[in-house]
């Protein structure tokens, strides 16, 4: 078995199964942020750790083929703008910045409740996960560049 990059075959096989479960768990934590402990930050870090797991197991070149890094950076930047846009919608509908203008809809303890809080959780989850992964990606390139000297 030819090993091009990354870790051994055992690690790659286990990662291939477990990464999807980790990403699913992160999405669950983000979507249920207004009902159970967790939220956008915690779920975002879980998703970033899943990507990091993939990068450590399969190597840097595989990640570069599998996902488009500049697209991840675009997601991260646009979710920051989306957070501001939701805040400005609060001015338009309720009178002040980041107002919860949807809070009257939905019932307590159900998934559809709490107005803008789940939307903001999803935005923060996208922001944190993609941001942390792009930082780790940049640092790994930096390390290679420094070692070649």
């Amino acid at each position: 078995m030819k090993q091009s990059s990354g870790m051994t075959l055992i690690v790659k096989t286990v990662t291939r199964v477990s990464v999807w479960l980790i990403i699913l768990y992160g999405i669950y934590i983000i979507l249920h942020g207004h009902l159970t402990p967790g939220g956008g930050f915690a779920g975002g870090v879980i998703i970033a750790l899943a990507f990091l797991n993939l990068m450590l197991a399969y190597g840097r070149d595989f990640i570069k083929k599998w996902v488009n890094i500049s697209f991840l950076h675009d997601i991260e930047s646009s979710s920051a703008a989306l957070f501001l846009a939701i805040g400005i919608l609060g001015i338009a509908f309720s009178g002040y910045f980041l107002a919860n203008f949807l809070s009257g809809y939905g019932t307590l303890y159900r998934l559809y409740s709490a107005g803008t809080i789940p939307i903001l959780n999803i935005v923060i989850g996208a922001k944190v996960s993609m941001g942390l992964f792009v930082v780790v990606w940049a640092l790994s390139i930096f390390h290679i560049d420094k070692g070649g000297k």
């Binding site: 159970t36 402990p37 939220g39 980041l98 809080i117 959780n121």
Partner: peptide, 26 residues
């Protein structure tokens, strides 16, 4: 706020400016 998790209701409704600042830092 209609949110069952009070921590989330604080960081995303009462103190949402704080979260905006954290996002800017990141």
């Amino acid at each position: 706020t209609g949110s069952a998790n009070l921590v989330t209701s604080i960081i995303l409704d009462y103190r949402a400016y704080d979260t905006l600042g954290e996002i800017t830092v990141l």
